[in-house]
């Protein structure tokens, strides 16, 4: 195998002041934007649905279970096509939304099913006596979750939430399917135009790696910030 690297094309113009390099940077921004908002949607919905599944209300539990099964058992790519082709047919206003919103929703809902699993098992790993202690003090259900259970559960599940956040960065690559100019789309198109696939894939892969690594650092920072002295949350 013989291959000569050539990086100069990165500075070639693709029209006006834009070069492949500036295109790459924009693409990275798209990847990060999708990931950020996707995680936001996944975190909020996943937390709510996960909490529902730990309550005593059978309607909430059933709703949470159905939600989780639906979004977990359809491939992400198919869910993106659902948002692009199918849902606008039923809710026409979606047609007006920019495509990135569709991708954020698709990735967010897909991941929310996994986040809901995390929240559910995090809350359920706390002992029933902790729940009783909160109730015995007169806290109502909302207060019980907000002040007593969730602060503990969130600390338990930070590592799994981190890997979900890193998964979202990787999964954002599926946005190429509806032609959003994120990193993977850039890689495919620039490869076609320049035939310098190796260089392009290398750079793009490194950027994905850096992004995931950054998420890991942020999460370690948060974990350290909210760490409680001498405490392991173990079920008694």
């Amino acid at each position: 195998m013989h291959y000569t690297f050539n990086w100069s094309f990165f500075f070639k113009s693709i029209g006006g002041k834009e070069t492949y390099l500036t295109w790459l940077v924009t693409a990275w921004e798209w990847t990060l934007t999708i990931s950020f908002f996707g995680f936001l949607v996944a975190f909020i919905l996943g937390a709510i649905v996960g909490i529902f599944r730990t309550t005593n209300n059978k309607y909430l539990v059933t709703f949470g279970n159905i939600w989780t099964e639906i979004f977990r058992n359809i491939p992400l790519l198919v869910q993106i096509f659902l948002w692009y082709h199918v849902i606008p047919h039923f809710i026409p206003i979606i047609n007006k939304a920019p495509r990135i919103v569709l991708v954020v929703m698709a990735i967010g809902l897909f991941t929310s099913s996994r986040v809901s699993e995390n929240f559910k098992s995090g809350i359920q790993s706390l002992s029933i006596a902790q729940k009783h202690a909160g109730l015995a003090l007169g806290l109502n259900t909302l207060q019980l979750y907000w002040y007593a259970l969730l602060p503990q559960a969130i600390r338990i599940i930070i590592p799994t939430l981190t890997s979900e956040a890193m998964n979202i960065i990787k999964n954002s690559s599926v946005a190429f399917a509806i032609s959003i100019a994120e990193l993977t789309m850039f890689a495919m198109q620039a490869q076609e135009e320049t035939a310098r696939g190796i260089e392009i894939y290398l750079v793009v892969s490194v950027l994905y790696f850096i992004s995931a690594f950054a998420v890991n650092l942020i999460s370690q920072f948060i974990e350290h910030k909210i760490k409680i002295p001498n405490q392991t949350f173990v079920k008694q």
């Binding site: 495919m188 490869q191 894939y201 994905y208």
Partner: peptide, 19 residues
């Protein structure tokens, strides 16, 4: 594990012919 699946698919797709 640090690469998106789609990127790995693309990588193999251009590397095999090269090799």
């Amino acid at each position: 594990r640090s690469l998106p699946f789609v990127m790995v698919i693309l990588w193999v797709f251009i590397l095999i012919p090269l090799v």
